[in-house]
Every structure is written in structure tokens, then in C-alpha cells.
Simulated scan of single mutants.
Amino acid sequence: MAKSANVSNAASSTLYLTELDVTRLEGIASRAGTAELDEMLDALLARAAIVPPDAIPRDVVTMNSRIVCALEGEAAPRDWTLVYPDDADLAAGRLSVLSPVGQALLGTRAGQTVNYRLPDGRAQSVTVIEIAFQPEASGQFTL
């Protein structure tokens, strides 16, 4: 799991999370009961602006957003939906928010590049090219 994600586009560095996403992530952390997950959530919350779902900017990656990303060193972009761990299926394009890249992407804005660490310690970066679907922008505040 990534210890932190660094946003390299400082002009848009506010990390936005919806109140519902935070509540659900806290629930996952309390059920898991692992120090690593608690630490990840604490680090995420420490740098986040938590807002009601209807106040989240439309260009922010939220839970269940479908995004098009460019991974450093790969020619073809990836099309992922950011999901909770129980719904993750990378082969189907459903990326867990608890994966290193998932943690880095949550709250990121379209056009931003974020850095994260792979489980083996190597640095990697990903750029959000487009947010193809954001539940809150579509009026789906409980998805």
C-alpha cells in the first residue's frame, strides 16, 4: 500500500473528498482493523477538503468515477472505475481505492499527475486525462 501520493500540479493541489466517500472509507478501515489502512486513511483525510456530494467539483475523481489515465512508461491510456475493495476487478477495469494507484487517484483533478509507490517500492506516476463519468456530476449522490 502506498504511504503517500504527491500531486505534482501544485496549482490544483486541493484534495476533495465527499462526505459519503469518507464515511464509507472509515467503515472499511474500522472493519479491516489494520494499522496500515488506518494510517493511509489518516494521511488522506489530513490533506483533504471534505465537502457534501453536491459541492464536489466536476473535475475531481470520486468513488465510482470512470477515468482515463496515462501511466508513466505506457503508450496506451487506461480506462478505470475507482471502486471500493469488494467491487475491485482489475481485469474488468475496476480499480480498488486501496491499491497504491487507487489511493493516489482519489480526489485528484482532471489534468493532474500524481506520484505513488508500487508495492515493491518503485516510484510511478499517473496522469488523469479525463473523467468520463463522475457520479456526483450526474446527480447520483449515493452511488
Rank of each mutant, 00 (worst) to 15 (best):
T142K: 11
N6P: 06
A5V: 07
V114I: 02
P119M: 08
L25K: 07
S65T: 07
E72A: 09
S13H: 10
N115K: 13
S125L: 07
C69L: 13
R109V: 04
A46G: 14
N64T: 13
W80I: 03
L118G: 00
G139N: 08
I131E: 00
L15N: 07
L143M: 12
F141Q: 06
A70Q: 15
T142P: 06
V114D: 00
V7D: 03
A92G: 02
A132M: 14
A55H: 13
Q103R: 00
D79R: 14
M40R: 15
A2L: 09
C69E: 03
L15M: 04
A29N: 04
L95V: 02
R24M: 12
Q112V: 00
I50G: 02
T62N: 08
V83L: 02
P77Y: 11
E72T: 09
D21R: 02
Q140D: 07
A55N: 12
A104M: 03
A104P: 01
F133P: 03
T81H: 07
E72V: 06
W80R: 06
E36F: 13
I129D: 01
L17E: 01
T34Q: 11
A43S: 15
N115I: 10
I131M: 08
L71M: 14
Y16A: 05
V22G: 02
R94Q: 08
A132T: 15
D54E: 13
S138E: 15
P100L: 03
D89P: 05
T81S: 02
V114A: 01
E74R: 15
S4D: 07
P85K: 12
D87Q: 15
R24T: 10
L44P: 12
Q140N: 13
T108C: 10
A5Y: 13
A123T: 07
A123G: 04
A29L: 06
T127H: 01
V126H: 08
K3M: 12
T113K: 09
D79S: 02
E36A: 14
L37I: 14
E130C: 04
Q134R: 14
R66P: 01
R58S: 14
E26C: 00
L143Q: 09
L90G: 02
S96W: 11
D38M: 09
A123N: 08
N64V: 12
A123K: 11
G139A: 06
A88Y: 10
A91I: 02
V7R: 10
S125V: 07
Q140E: 11
P100M: 09
P135E: 01
Y116W: 09
D86W: 04
A46R: 14
Q112W: 03
L105K: 08
A5G: 13
L106H: 08
A92N: 10
M63H: 06
A91V: 06
L98G: 02
D21I: 00
E74F: 15
A32F: 11
G27F: 11
N64Y: 15
E39W: 09
R58H: 12
F133I: 06
G102V: 00
R58K: 13
L106N: 04
L41S: 04
D87L: 14
L41I: 06
D21Q: 05
L17Y: 01
L45I: 09
R94M: 08
T127L: 03
